[in-house]
């Protein structure tokens, strides 16, 4: 898919997320929309290596959506690709059906999610296993920016560079909004972030998380690195629907009937 098609696909995914949120009566729209473009690029833009007919292929790239509360976007992509059935997709929000996180009972999912701060260490273990077994797959994970407050994130960052895991890629969904606050660059976690990570031994990259060409170009660059890569994707929480953008209260919630109509109109205009 070229970037124009990817943009349309991302708008379609956002529409699916909206409809699932409405029909399921729950959903984390804001943080899902901030990372939708990146997810679409990863799966449709040939960033991740996988075989649709063989989800357990040993040489597949591993991807962990640590912010699993953005599961609705992943479900839409998986349905579209045939990784999960339409019937399973429809179970979202129902007792025993698809829920607010992902787990390994689903094809294409590498690890259970829901607890923050685990995924970089897990992906590091996967990347290390690849090195040990002389395999060339990559381990990717996408974390939320507020997740950087977890101490175990920093334990894993140190481990990744210590073991020279250049097949490990961390993408940060930098939407600047945690559940309760705005986290700007003057916050001690983000102060001199790139320099800090470079001093930690990481290959630091930045991109606009809503610019498809840039996402593809920058994520392609990680393969040139002899260090693990960390990619700061600058994003907007609620991206794609005007009244949701940069609003912390859309971390979790269901739009009203009127809001749904506006959102549908805005999203459908993005894929024509």
């Amino acid at each position: 898919m070229d970037s124009k098609e990817l943009i349309k696909k991302a708008a379609w995914v956002r529409m699916e997320v909206l409809e699932s949120t409405v029909s399921g009566g729950k959903g984390h729209i804001g943080g899902t929309y901030s990372c939708t473009d990146i997810l679409v690029a990863l799966y449709y833009g040939k960033i991740l290596r996988f075989k649709l007919d063989n989800p357990g292929w040993e040489d597949r790239d591993r991807f962990i959506l640590s912010k699993g509360h953005a599961s609705l976007a992943l479900f839409a992509i998986f349905k579209d690709m045939g990784i999960i059935s339409p019937g399973l997709y429809e179970t979202y929000g129902k007792n025993g059906g698809l829920g607010g996180q992902v787990d390994i009972s689903l094809p294409g999912i590498e690890t259970n999610t829901g607890s923050l701060g685990h995924s970089i260490g897990i992906a590091a273990g996967m990347a290390l296993a690849a090195k040990m077994d002389s395999r060339d797959y990559y381990a990717y994970t996408m974390i939320g920016d507020a997740e950087l407050f977890e101490g175990s994130v920093w334990e894993a960052l140190m481990f990744g560079s210590q073991h020279k895991l250049n097949n490990l890629v961390v993408i940060i969904d930098r939407n600047r909004l945690s559940v309760m606050e705005t986290i700007d660059d003057d916050n001690s976690v983000f102060m001199n972030f790139g320099r800090k990570l470079e001093l930690f031994g990481w290959n630091y990259l930045e991109l606009d998380g809503h610019n498809m060409d840039e996402i593809l170009a920058v994520l392609g660059m990680v393969k040139l690195s002899d260090k693990p890569s960390i990619v700061m994707a600058n994003t907007v929480k609620g991206k794609g629907v005007s009244f949701m953008e940069n609003k912390a209260n859309w971390h979790h919630g269901v739009p009203t009937k009127e809001q749904v109509e506006i959102a549908r109109k805005e999203l459908s205009s993005q894929w024509v």
Partner: peptide, 19 residues
């Protein structure tokens, strides 16, 4: 290193890849 949380997480990733 003295990082038990990471130790379990790394062990998780290694195990998921067959170790």
């Amino acid at each position: 290193g003295v990082a038990e949380q990471n130790q379990i997480n790394v062990a998780t990733g290694l195990t998921l890849c067959g170790k």
